[in-house]
Each structure stands twice: as C-alpha cells, then as structure tokens.
Design a protein around this nucleic acid. Structure first.
Length: 355
DNA sequence: TCCATTTGACCGCA
DNA sequence: TGCGGTCAAATGGA
C-alpha cells in the first residue's frame, strides 16, 4: 500500500526531473546561439539534471527510462469542469453535486508562516475573492473561504480556505481545492484577499491593500519575500492520484520581469497551485508516501536534498543565464516559458525535443 | 456604478 | 442534528 505510494512519488519525482530537463532544453533553444555563457550554463544544468535522474532512478525500482516512458498519467486531461458543464453559473444547478465533485477534487494544504510584519497569508500569485467566513468549532480564529476571482468570468473552480493557526497566529493553514482553469491574469495579478487578515484581527484589509499598492516592490518580490519568510510549508495532497490526474500544465509563472531566485530551503515557487500541479520544481516536495502527514523541511529524505540542491542550481543557472546572456531579453526570465494550457509534455513536439 | 467584503441563512454530509 | 461549505443580500470603498 504504502510502497506503491512511494513508487508514485518516485515516478513523479523522476518525471519532474525529466520535465525540468526538457524545459531547460527548450530554454536553450530560446537562447542566442552565440551566447557561450548561456550554453555552458545550460549544459551544466542539463548534466546536473542527468545526475539527478540517475540518483532518483537508483532509489526507485523503476528505471529512469521506464518512468520516462510511463510519463505522468492524464497529462492531457485538461478539462475544465466548468468548460464542460457550460455556464459558470451552472454551479447553482449543480449544488447538489458540489460535494460529490469536491470529494474527487484536487486538494492540498499548505502552512504558511508569515513574518511578524505581515498580517495575513502570503499572496500566492492568484487572485482570490472572499466569499465566506465561518467560525470553526474548536478553532480560535474563523476560517475564510476564497474562490478564484475569475470564477464567474472563466468558470475557474479553484477555491481555498484560510485558517489561522490556533497555536501560532503567524501560521496560516491554507487549503486549496480544485485547479485554476482560468487564464489567470498572472501577468499582472492584483494583491489578493488572501493577504488580508482574518476577522478578529482588526480591519487590516484595506490598510494592507493600501500598503501593497504603495509598496514599491513588485508582486513577484512580494511573493519571494513572503515565501522566504515561510518557515513551515507543507503540501499535502490528500488524494494523490487526483494530484497526478489533475496535473495541469499551464505554466503560470510570476509576472513579467520576475526574477526567480534560488530556492532556498523550503522555499517554493509562489503559486501553490503551481506547486502541486505544475510539473515543475515544487512538486519535488509534493505529496509524500500516501500518508496524509505533512512534509516538513526536516522530514524529507536525502534524495530530496540532493535534488533540491540540483534544482537550486538549475533555477539559479537558468535565471542567471537568461539575464546575463547576450541577446536574451532580461525580461525573458521564465515568462517565456509561460505556455498554453493545452501544451502537453507528452505530445509529439515534446517527445521530439527529448531525442 | 462597480467591485470586494461581510455576514446571516441555507444546504448537504457524516 | 451539528458542522462545514456556499450562497446571496447588504454594505462600503474607490
């Protein structure tokens, strides 16, 4: 039982690495061919990835090639629940089915430790609209319910619940449900309500928003700052198979011009949705071994650390190469990797790249 | 006027 | 039947 979960983790892990490798290769194609520095860096990145694949494969009963061939299940299953069901407001008719759907929904939680100077949970790069708040039995603080701002427009079914921890008010338990099917205006996301304080925490809402707008730093900086302040972050996919099946490959990197810094410690990309569903780096810390226990920094194995350092290097190298290389627009960063949601890693184009 | 938040009410599940 | 999740009217700010 458990071992099969582990296997899935390993398969997933290896696939992650494969995909990062392919991304790097794709990135190389975008680089100016005359950029020797960039090329060297890319090669270095690729060799790191090869090592990572080898290491991961060694610890898995699946061979690397085996895993690569298996690929992730349902990579192409990019179905928006709403796009299939019609009008966004069809929820109203489906209300009776909501809970049924919810059961099978991708769900994961995350603990975010905000710094003392921050009043609310971090901005995760998505726009959320608060639609409810509820006092939870036994909880000191009320739980806030948020849904994607674009739900009504694009039928995005993503929701999240924000619950301030009883023990440590600086820690927010954020539970995400569903996936973003919206073409998130991540290019210019607005400060979200997720940054607002919970009730009983004075009215920081507008003060925070005001501060957000006044602060000179970009949102991406905000994201990085906030996440670097996270001492506890965990991803818990309660239904791992769903996580795999729900993999969506709409790359939603931080806004244009974003500089992705080295992932330090438990830092992840800003978007927890990206974390849990996009087959990019953060999934390295994704669902563990089928148990619902949370992954803490000190709870990961050596393999993870190895990969993490590799990943760190990858991101660092990728970003520096993108920003330093002659002929590469600094704004390229990872924005250029923003892909069409219909992009499939398993498609022909991608398989060709792999060769 | 538009949009986001608040909050009481409603609904379904366990 | 209680609780969690969602709805929708009311409210307030820009």
């Amino acid at each position: 039982m458990e071992s099969s979960s582990v296997d899935w983790d390993q398969i997933s892990l290896i696939n992650e690495i494969y995909q990062v490798r392919e991304l790097v290769r794709a990135l190389r194609n975008h680089l100016n061919p005359t950029s020797l520095t960039g090329d060297v860096l890319i090669e270095k990145t690729l060799s790191s990835l090869e090592r990572a694949i080898a290491m991961a494969s060694a610890s898995s009963r699946f061979g690397a090639g085996e895993v690569a061939q298996q690929g992730l299940p349902s990579m192409g299953m990019l179905e928006s629940p709403h796009s299939l069901s019609g009008s966004p407001h069809s929820d109203d008719n489906e209300r009776g089915d909501v809970s049924k759907k919810r059961k099978g929904m991708l769900k994961w939680s995350e603990q975010v430790n905000v710094g003392p100077g921050l009043d609310g949970p971090v901005d995760d790069g998505h726009s959320w609209r608060k639609y409810g708040q509820k006092d939870i039995l036994g909880a000191k603080y009320p739980r806030g319910y948020y849904r994607c701002t674009y739900r009504s427009v694009q039928g995005c079914s993503a929701t999240k619940q924000v619950q301030r921890s009883d023990e440590n008010p600086l820690i927010f338990d954020i539970t995400y449900r569903g996936r973003h099917t919206c073409m998130q205006s991540s290019h210019n996301p607005v400060p979200t309500t997720s940054q607002t304080a919970q009730n009983g925490e004075e009215d920081h809402t507008h003060k925070d928003q005001l501060e957000q707008h006044l602060k000179p730093r970009s949102q991406s900086q905000e994201i990085l700052l906030n996440f670097s302040s996270s001492s506890l972050e965990s991803i818990k996919a309660e239904n791992f198979s769903n996580v795999l099946q729900d993999h969506t490959y709409s790359f939603t990197f931080p806004p244009s011009g974003t500089e992705i810094h080295g992932l330090n410690g438990s830092s992840t990309l800003a978007d927890p949705y990206v974390v849990a569903t996009n087959n990019f780096s953060p999934t390295f810390m994704s669902p563990t071994s089928g148990s619902s226990s949370q992954i803490h920094n000190n709870g990961v194995g050596e393999n993870f650390e190895i990969h993490e350092s590799d990943l760190d290097e990858i991101v660092r190298v990728a970003t520096t190469s993108a920003s330093n290389s002659v002929g590469v627009d600094r704004n390229f960063a990872f924005d250029a990797l923003e892909m069409d949601p219909s992009f499939l890693f398993g498609n022909d184009w991608f398989s060709k790249l792999r060769k």
